[in-house]
Write a protein that binds this DNA or RNA. Sequence first.
RNA 1: GGAGAGGUGGCAGAGUGGCCGAAUGCGCCUGACUCGAAAUCAGGUAUACAUGAAUAAUGUAUCGUGGGUUCAAAUCCCACCCUCUCCGCCA
Length: 425
Amino acid sequence: MLDIQLLRNGREQVAASLATRGFVLDTHEFTRLEAERKRLQTYTQTLQAQRNSSAKAIGIAKSRGEDIATIMAEVAHLGEDLTVAESALNILQSELNDMLQSIPNLPHQSVPIGHSEADNVELSRFGTPQEMDFSAQDHVDLGEKLGLDFEIASRMSGARFALLRGGVARLHRALAQFMMDTHTDQHGYTETWVPYLVNAAALRGTGQLPKFEEDLFCVPRQGMDPLYLIPTAEVPLTNIVREQIVPLADLPLKFVAHTPCFRSEAGAYGRDTRGMIRQHQFDKVELVQLVEPHLSYDVLETLTGHAEAILRALGLPYRKLALCTRDLGFSAAKTYDLEVWLPAQKTYREISSCSNFEAFQARRMQARFRNAQGKTELLHTVNGSGLAVGRTLVAVLENYQQADGSVVVPEVIRPYMGGLERLVP
RNA sequence: GGAGAGGUGGCAGAGUGGCCGAAUGCGCCUGACUCGAAAUCAGGUAUACAUGAAUAAUGUAUCGUGGGUUCAAAUCCCACCCUCUCCGCCA
C-alpha cells in the first residue's frame, strides 16, 4: 500500500510513475473520494465532540443533583445524526481503502522503463552452457526413466502435478537440504518452519489479496473464514512481523524456510504445460529480510547474491536480469530475476526472483521498528527465492545429463545423497 | 469434542455505567543530589487519524474483534476470535 500522503500531495507524479508499469490511476475518482472523506470526517468528528461534551456535562450535572432535562433536550437529535454520519464515513473510508489496496507499488528510480518482458535488462551472466556432443533431452524424457512421473500424478490430481520416486525424489530433497544448510550456516538466516495455510489478512499484508484471489487455492471451512494455501513462504515469513514493533537491536531479521507452494495458475492456460516448470504444487526455499529503510537496497543486492551462491555452487549457468517497470510484481519496487540455462529449451528460465518492497508490505501489515530516536517507523521488506526447488531439479537433470541418459550428481549434493555420484536409468 | 477461567498501555496489574486514555508498580527518559555511581526525590513516558506550514495547538478514535443498549460503555447485552487449565480423542 502506498502512503496516502503521497497521493494527496503528489497525485500527478504518482500517476506518472504508475503509468510506467501499465497501471492507470484514476486521479479524478481519488480526488472525489478524498474531498468527500474530508467533509464527512470533519462533520462526524464535530458531532462526536458535541456528544462527548454533552455526556460529560450530564454526568457532572447529575452528580451535583442538578436538573438535566435541558441538556438532554439539546442532544436528543444527536444520536441519529451521528449514526447516519458515521455509517456514511465508514462506507467512504472502505471505498477509499479498497482503491488504495489495489494500487501497485511505485517502481524505484533505478528500474528500467519498459513495455514488456523484452525490455528487462540483462546485468550479468555466470557460467557457460555446456557443449553436448549429443542432442539434449528435456527433463520429462530424461526423468521418465529416473522416477519422474506425470501420468500417475495426473490420475490422482489432474494436470500440473508431478510424482517423484527413487533417485529423483532423493535429489529433490537433497537440493532443498543443501539450500537450507547454505543459507543458515553461511548466510546467517534463521531456519523457520511455518504454516502452509494462512488467512486473508496475511495475504493482504504481502499484497496477494485483494487483487489476485484467482491465483490462490482457497480452503473453505464450515462456519469459519476460509484459509488459503500459501503461494510462497514469503507470506508466512513476512507476516512474522505483522502488527509488531521490532526493537532496533533485533534488526535485520533474516528468515529462511523450505515449504511447498500452491498456485492455481489460472492465467497460464496452455503455458509450460509440459514438465515441471509450472506446477500447482512446488517446493521453494525462500529468503526474507526485514530491515531498516536506508539499508533495503543494499540488502536486495546481498540477498540476490545469496540466491546466486546456490546456482554457483551447483555449477548451473545463469543470468541476472533487472525487471523493467511493466514486468514488476504488484508489491515490488525493484526486482532481479535469476534465470537458469535449460539446454533442451536452449534458453534461460526464471529460477529465482528477488525483490525490495520498501514499506509497501510493511504498511499493509503495520510492521514497524523503533528507530534510534525512539519513534516507530515502517520496516522495509526484501525477499527472494533461494531457490525454486522444482526448477532447480529440472536444471540439474538437464545440465548434468550424459549421452546414456544418466545424470551426474553435482558434487556439493553428493553428501546429501549418501555419496551417490550418478543417477542411472 | 466436553467443562471451566481469562484477554486492559513496553511489562505486571487495578478498574462493574459518568472529569477513565485509563490507578499503582516495574521498565525507560529528563532533572536534582553526588567526584562518579547506587539509593533517594521531582517531572515526563501509547498509537493512529483529522484540521494545520508545524516535531505547535485542538479535535476524534483505540481497553481481543465485530455488533447492540444508553445522553454516556474498559465496565451492561449478543456473536465471533484467541490464550490457559482439566477431561476425551489423536500424527
